[in-house]
Computed example of a mutant assay.
Amino acid sequence: MRTIIKWEFSHLHPATQMTKVNMPGQRPPLSELLAHHRLLQGLPPEVALHLCLDAQTMQANAGQILFNEGDEARYCLLVDSGQVEILRYSQNGDERVFNVFEPGQMVAEAAMFMPHGRYPMCARAKGAARVYKLSRSSLQEACRRWPELAMNMMAGLSSALYAQVNKVDWISASSAAERLANYLLNLQARQGENIQLPLNQRQLAAHLGIRAETLSRLFTDWQARGYVSGKRSDWQVHDQAHLRRLASPAQRSF
Rank of each mutant, 00 (worst) to 15 (best):
A73V: 03
V97I: 12
R217D: 13
A177I: 00
C52A: 09
T16D: 15
G117N: 15
P120K: 02
S229G: 08
P115A: 08
Q41F: 13
S248G: 01
L187P: 05
G192R: 02
S90W: 08
H116W: 15
E69H: 11
P120T: 08
A173I: 07
A150C: 08
V168G: 12
S216V: 05
I65R: 04
T220K: 14
A73W: 04
P115Q: 10
G230Q: 11
H242Q: 10
E72M: 12
V165D: 15
A125H: 13
Q223F: 09
M112P: 06
E85Y: 06
L53W: 00
H238M: 05
D221M: 02
A212D: 05
L34W: 00
L208M: 06
L184T: 07
P120N: 05
G226Q: 11
P29R: 04
S175Q: 07
R244V: 06
Q64S: 06
H36P: 01
R190V: 15
A247F: 03
L43I: 12
V21N: 11
P29H: 06
N186S: 13
Y132K: 06
A48R: 04
Q59P: 00
S138M: 10
Y132H: 13
S81L: 08
A163T: 14
K20Q: 00
Q196H: 11
P44I: 05
D54W: 06
Y162A: 15
A108E: 06
A160Y: 04
Q236S: 07
S174I: 01
F67D: 04
R130Y: 06
N68Q: 15
N61K: 09
Q91C: 10
M151C: 07
L204A: 07
G230A: 10
L208P: 03
V165H: 14
Q196A: 13
P120F: 11
P28V: 10
L12I: 13
E148M: 02
A110Q: 05
D169C: 04
C76Q: 07
V21P: 01
Y75F: 14
F9C: 12
R118W: 05
R130G: 05
A111V: 02
M151P: 00
P115Y: 06
S172R: 09
R144Y: 09
T57S: 12
S159T: 02
V21F: 00
N22K: 09
Y75K: 06
M58A: 09
R145W: 09
G127D: 12
C143I: 03
I195V: 14
M112Q: 04
Q41K: 15
A125F: 09
R211K: 15
M121V: 10
L161I: 03
Q59F: 03
P115E: 11
L33P: 00
H242W: 14
L39N: 10
D239H: 13
P45E: 11
D54V: 13
V131H: 02
R202Y: 11
